[in-house]
C-alpha cells in the first residue's frame, strides 16, 4: 500500500481527501436538513421524534453516521494540516497583500472551518450528547414504543435568543464555506470544463445559499412563532 499512502501524502492527494469528504458532508447536510424540516410540521414533534428514533436505531443509518463522524474528523484534521503547511510555505508575510482577485471565502477556508467546528461541538453537546446520556424525556406516540423527545429539547433551545443568533451566524459561515468549497471540490477532482463550469458554479451558489437558509429558518421560526 505504499503507493497509496504516498498518494495520500502528496499535495494533490491531500486535496482529494478534502474534496471528497467535503462533498460527502454536503450530502450529509442535505439529509440533515430534510430531517430538520420536520420540526416545522405542526404535530407537537411527533414526526420529528419518530424520525430521530429511526435515524438512531436503523443499523445502516447508524453505520453511515459513524462514517460521517469519521469523515468530519478527517476533513478537520486534514484541513488543519493543510492550513499549517500553507502558512509554513510563506513564513515571511507580505506587508501589503492584495485581495482584489480572490474571494473572501477562498482566502479564509481555514478560519471559516474552525468556526464551523466550534459550532459543531456546541451543537453536538446541546443535542446529540443530551440524547446519548439519556437526559431527554421519553414520549409515546400511539402504539409505538416510547421515543426520546428531542423535539422538546430543540424547542427550548430555539427559544433562547443567544442560541438562535449563534445558530444563524454559524449558518452564514457555512454558506461562505460551501460557496468556495463546492466548486473548489470539483476543480480539485479535475472537473473543470468550459461546458460545465457554469452549471457547477450555479449549483454551488444555490447549495451555499439554500442549505444554510433552510437550517437558519427553523430556529428563527421557532423563536418567533412557537
Amino acid at each position: 500500500m505504499s503507493w497509496f499512502s504516498q498518494f495520500l501524502k502528496s499535495s494533490i492527494g491531500k486535496k482529494l481527501i478534502m474534496s471528497l469528504t467535503g462533498l460527502f458532508l454536503v450530502l450529509f447536510l442535505v439529509v440533515h436538513l430534510s430531517g430538520n424540516l420536520q420540526l416545522l410540521s405542526d404535530d407537537g414533534g411527533e414526526s420529528f421524534n419518530m424520525y430521530t428514533k429511526f435515524m438512531t436505531s436503523n443499523p445502516l443509518i447508524k453505520t453511515i453516521s459513524y462514517v460521517t463522524y469519521f469523515l468530519i474528523l478527517l476533513h478537520t484534521i486534514q484541513g488543519i494540516m493543510i492550513w499549517r503547511q500553507n502558512r509554513g510555505a510563506r513564513a515571511s508575510r507580505y506587508a501589503v497583500s492584495s485581495t482584489k482577485h480572490t474571494t473572501f471565502a477562498s482566502r479564509n477556508m481555514g478560519a471559516l472551518g474552525t468556526i464551523i467546528l466550534i459550532f459543531l461541538l456546541l451543537h453536538m453537546y446541546q443535542f446529540w450528547l443530551q440524547m446519548k446520556i439519556d437526559a431527554t424525556e421519553m414520549v409515546v406516540y400511539g402504539d409505538y414504543e416510547p421515543v426520546k423527545d428531542l423535539y422538546a429539547l430543540v424547542a427550548v433551545a430555539f427559544k433562547q435568543p443567544l442560541y438562535v443568533i449563534i445558530y444563524v451566524l454559524s449558518m452564514i459561515v457555512i454558506a461562505f464555506h460551501l460557496r468556495h468549497g463546492f466548486q473548489s471540490a470539483f476543480q480539485t477532482l479535475g472537473l473543470n470544463h468550459i461546458k460545465y463550469n457554469g452549471v457547477i458554479r450555479f449549483l454551488g451558489n444555490a447549495i451555499a445559499i439554500l442549505i444554510p437558509l433552510g437550517f437558519a429558518f427553523i430556529p428563527v421560526f421557532f423563536y418567533l412563532f412557537r
Partner: peptide
C-alpha cells in the same frame, strides 16, 4: 516546500 493549492485562483489573475 510550496504550499497546497486551495483554488483561490489568485495565480491565474
Amino acid at each position: 516546500g510550496f504550499g497546497n493549492c486551495s483554488n483561490t485562483y489568485a495565480c491565474e489573475a
